[in-house]
């Protein structure tokens, strides 16, 4: 790729912002740029990134999904309860259960959206409340403490794919979570780039009517999209559990807007059809750095919400102001 094309890309600018940001934080507190801190950031944000990838795919298709967090917690909480009740102590089992729940709930979204053609934002707001309400009413409301978490899950949370020894002999490493993220990224990339259904997601997001006329099966594509987002939410549910070694059915829910914000900051258009995985990952990085590292520069955590809001407002303002200027340059009078 040549330099000219690079400067045209949204991701380039975003990456620059992340780098500048990191340098600023690092000058104030040099702890930031240590391998250990970066490994830690990767471990704690991999789950968020996977959830964001699900939302990214939905946004590409021209929809929006605010129920992904509710699906994630449903998957997690049902999985942990089943494991405890059945006495099965197996991480694969946990993933299987959580992913099945995710797929099923994703399919519920898909039914409302593809068959009844309902607006996606309001539908997923509704299903989010529906899923979470069902979980709390029929599965339970009590948090599962670390003592009751199956060992296999705790072990999974500590598993590293790369370990580095500290001078004092203790070790730290790159979590297996990062590997899962890499797998999800590669799989999603392959689907989007090399399968007809992936191209179909771009097509219905770009021009739905044309997609229909060309012969795409829109229902099938929408079904796949929402189920895939549900599946990824299921994966994230278990990762979150292994990360914090604690399961509270009220966690995760409520962070959906931050996740959408990360994807949108990454350059994905809310109208559908345009966006990249790289952008999404950079967007997640930006939000994560804001969330986890304000403390490093001496700001209390209660500044978090404010900063994230600020970044979103600035991000969308710049994007749309740019669009407006470009439209004016084109001198097309249609855009009045």
């Amino acid at each position: 790729m040549n330099l000219k094309k690079l400067t045209k890309k949204n991701e380039t600018y975003l990456l620059l912002i992340v780098i500048v940001f990191s340098i600023v934080i690092n000058t104030i507190n040099p702890v930031f740029m240590t391998v250990e801190n970066i490994f830690d950031l990767l471990r704690s944000s991999s789950g968020t990134a996977i959830l964001a990838i699900g939302v990214f795919v939905v946004l590409l298709s021209g929809g929006i999904d605010v129920s992904c967090t509710a699906i994630a917690i449903c998957g997690q909480y049902i999985a942990i309860n089943v494991l405890i009740a059945s006495g099965v102590d197996n991480i694969v089992m946990a993933f299987l259960i959580s992913i099945s729940v995710g797929l099923a709930l994703g399919a519920v979204n898909a039914v409302f959206i593809s068959i009844f053609n309902l607006p996606t934002l309001i539908t997923t707001l509704g299903t989010s409340s529906l899923f979470h309400g069902l979980l709390l009413e029929f599965v339970g409301t009590k948090a599962v403490n670390v003592g009751n978490i199956p060992d296999s899950i705790k072990a999974f949370g500590k598993m590293n794919i790369l370990t580095i020894a500290r001078p004092d002999g203790t070790e730290y490493g790159l979590s297996i979570f990062f590997l899962i993220l890499v797998i999800v990224v590669v799989v999603t990339w392959l689907i989007l780039k090399f399968t007809m259904i992936g191209r179909g997601i771009y097509a219905i997001g770009g021009n739905r009517e044309a997609a229909q006329r060309t012969g795409y099966n829109i229902r099938k594509i929408q079904f796949f999209t929402y189920c895939y987002a549900g599946l990824l939410a299921g994966v994230m549910g278990v990762m979150h559990l292994a990360l914090i070694r604690y399961s509270n059915p009220n966690y995760i829910v409520g962070t959906e807007l931050n996740i959408i914000a990360a994807v949108v900051l990454g350059g994905t258009r809310i109208s559908g059809g345009t966006g990249t995985l790289t952008g999404t990952l950079i967007g997640v990085a930006l939000i994560t750095i804001l969330q986890k590292n304000l403390v490093l520069i001496g700001l209390s955590s209660y500044w978090q919400e404010f900063f994230i809001g600020m970044i979103i407002v600035l991000g969308v303002t710049i994007t749309y102001a740019q669009n407006k200027i470009n439209a004016r340059r084109k001198l097309s009078i249609d855009s009045v």
Binding site: K193, T195, M196, R199, A203, G206, N207, A210, T214
Partner: peptide, 29 residues
């Protein structure tokens, strides 16, 4: 058709080949 039924977000190459791809009922690209 008058509106051309093209996909603005996709490349020229993909827009031209898309019908053919769908026609052959292939799964991959």
């Amino acid at each position: 058709y008058q509106d051309l039924s093209l996909f603005p977000n996709l490349t020229v190459a993909e827009n031209i080949s898309i019908n053919q791809m769908l026609e052959t009922n292939q799964q991959g690209v």
